[in-house]
Each structure stands twice: as structure tokens, then as C-alpha cells.
């Protein structure tokens, strides 16, 4: 019974962390920007207009509240079900992952919206003067070699463990796992390459802020890559060692750690008070 209790504690933590704590911090940051960079003086920061940006904030808030309510309802239903014997923990092991995907939707929307906003900023950018740094950018300017090679080593260790659990035979399951891992790491390689050698996303961003944002992004990519490898190792271990009762707990903790090292680290690394907002001023 104590495994069930620990799982539900972890699930409560997952609901609060991802649908309450992080949205609250992001909304506070939005308010900070709105307050310190009003539309009247920083028009470049609001390419879609102030009302549209405010609408985005409200949508993010409402979506997170709705997901929080869904989480509380799910928690109540499954908690009651588990403790009156109608539900078993090994039957709901995908609940934290499925709910986690739902929790990720507002964050995904906010990312897509930011990309669209940057594209609009680039299209509206009429400045004739353009600035560039005369220093070459390389991967290790943004991420430590230890962190980078740890991610690479974890990828190979994870591949080895997946194959070893399957007696080094390629089955459909193994192919799916390997494909997912390659796809995920391939996405990070592509995004990393674009950040290093591609065009500036935000045309007004100062070189210092760009460096901070790129560092935060690489920090997040390497951490998530390591965690994906850890997750697949845990996933196969659960099957191999028949740890079905632990799987739901692993999944919930995994999802929370994933958010801590991606969104959490990004929020920690980018200090809004140190961002140069003068570049967004209408007169600059």
C-alpha cells in the first residue's frame, strides 16, 4: 500500500509543479515584461499588438487552470479507486505520462507562439543597420564538454542496455525505442545547429542576451537528452525486472525531473532583470 501512497504523493507534486507552480512563474515573468516594457515605448516587443499578447497570456492561464482541475479530478477518481480496490497501480502506469503530455500543451503553445512572434519581428524589422559578433560561435561556448559528452555517452549506454535486455536481437519494440531516441536526439542536434549557425530568431536581441538564451537552450537539450536515455533504461528495466508497481511512480518522477531540467533551468538561467530591453524601444 505504501507504493500507492508514494505514487499519489508524486502525482500531486506533478500536478502542482507543472500546472500550478511553473505557469505561475511564467505569468509573473509576463507581467514583469508588460510592466517594464509598456507597449507605448517598446512597440518592437509586441509585433502582434498589445491586445493579442494579452490574449496569449489569458489563454495560457485558462488552459493551465483547466488542466489543473482535470488533474485534481483524475487524482480523486484514481485515488478512491485504488484504495477501495477497484483499480491497481500497474494498470494506471501510463496515467502520469498521459496527463504529463496534457500538461505540456500550454508550454508547447507558448513556444510555437514565441516562434511566430519572432518571425513577425523579423518581417517588420526595417532597421538598416545590422550588427554581428566578430567571434566564431562553437558548441563549447555554450555547453561544457563534460555535459555534452555525458549526453553522448548516455545515448550509447542506453542503446547497449536496450539491446542487452533483448539478447541483442532487433525486435519491433527495440526498433521503436531506438527510433524514438534517435528522433529525439536528432531534433536536439537540428535545433542546436540552427541556434549556432542559423539566423537570429529575435532580430533585435543584444549579443549578450543571445548568448544567455543559447546557453539556456543547450543546457536544456543536453539535460533532456540524458533524461530520455535514463527514461528508456528505466522503461526496459521495469519490463525486465517485473517492476510494474513502480512504473507509475517512475513515470511521474521522470516527468517532473524533465520539467525541472528544461523549463526550470531555462527560467533560472534567464534573469529578466538583466535583459537589455532598450533594443525593443521604438526610438532605438
Amino acid at each position: 500500500m505504501w507504493i500507492e501512497l508514494i505514487f499519489y504523493l508524486a502525482f500531486v507534486s506533478q500536478i502542482l509543479l507543472i500546472s500550478c507552480y511553473y505557469p505561475k512563474r511564467i505569468l509573473e515573468r509576463m507581467d514583469f515584461v508588460f510592466k517594464h516594457c509598456p507597449f507605448e515605448t517598446h512597440k518592437k516587443l509586441y509585433p502582434k499588438g498589445y491586445e493579442k499578447t494579452l490574449e496569449g497570456k489569458v489563454t495560457f492561464k485558462v488552459l493551465n487552470r483547466a488542466i489543473l482541475v482535470i488533474g485534481v479530478l483524475l487524482l480523486t477518481v484514481f485515488f478512491v479507486g485504488t484504495f477501495n480496490g477497484t483499480m491497481q497501480l500497474n494498470k494506471i502506469n501510463l496515467l502520469p505520462m498521459a496527463y504529463g503530455l496534457l500538461q505540456a500543451i500550454p508550454f508547447f503553445i507558448i513556444e510555437i507562439s514565441a516562434l511566430k512572434q519572432f518571425k513577425l519581428m523579423r518581417n517588420l524589422n526595417s532597421a538598416t543597420k545590422r550588427q554581428a559578433d566578430l567571434n566564431p560561435r562553437s558548441l563549447f561556448n555554450y555547453v561544457s564538454p563534460v555535459r555534452f559528452y555525458a549526453a553522448v555517452i548516455m545515448f550509447f549506454v542506453c542503446s547497449y542496455i536496450i539491446f542487452s535486455f533483448n539478447d541483442f536481437e532487433v525486435s519491433f519494440d527495440v526498433a521503436v525505442l531506438m527510433g524514438s531516441m534517435l528522433l529525439c536526439n536528432g531534433l536536439f542536434v537540428g535545433l542546436g545547429y540552427t541556434l549556432l549557425h542559423g539566423k537570429k530568431l529575435d532580430p533585435h536581441q543584444s549579443p549578450k542576451d543571445r548568448h544567455i538564451m543559447t546557453t539556456a537552450a543547450f543546457h536544456s537539450y543536453t539535460s533532456v537528452s540524458i533524461l530520455v536515455s535514463v527514461f528508456f533504461i528505466l522503461n526496459r528495466s521495469v519490463d525486465h525486472y517485473a517492476l510494474d508497481d513502480w512504473e507509475a511512480l517512475f513515470n511521474s518522477l521522470y516527468w517532473q525531473v524533465l520539467m525541472l531540467v528544461s523549463t526550470g533551468a531555462a527560467l533560472k538561467l534567464t534573469n529578466l532583470e538583466k535583459v537589455n530591453y532598450d533594443v525593443y524601444k521604438t526610438t532605438s
Partner: peptide, 24 residues
């Protein structure tokens, strides 16, 4: 930049692609 010693002999310069992308 060279004359003003803002960049020194042997310093690396950005690649053509990087500079072109940064300056659009």
C-alpha cells in the same frame, strides 16, 4: 579592428555562413 588591435593575429573569425546569417 585589426589596426585598432581589437582583434589580434591568430584570432579566429566567424565562418562565412555565421557572419552572413547574423548580418542577414
Amino acid at each position: 579592428a585589426v589596426a585598432g588591435e581589437k582583434i589580434q593575429p591568430g584570432d579566429p573569425l566567424p565562418s562565412i555562413r555565421q557572419l552572413a546569417n547574423d548580418l542577414d
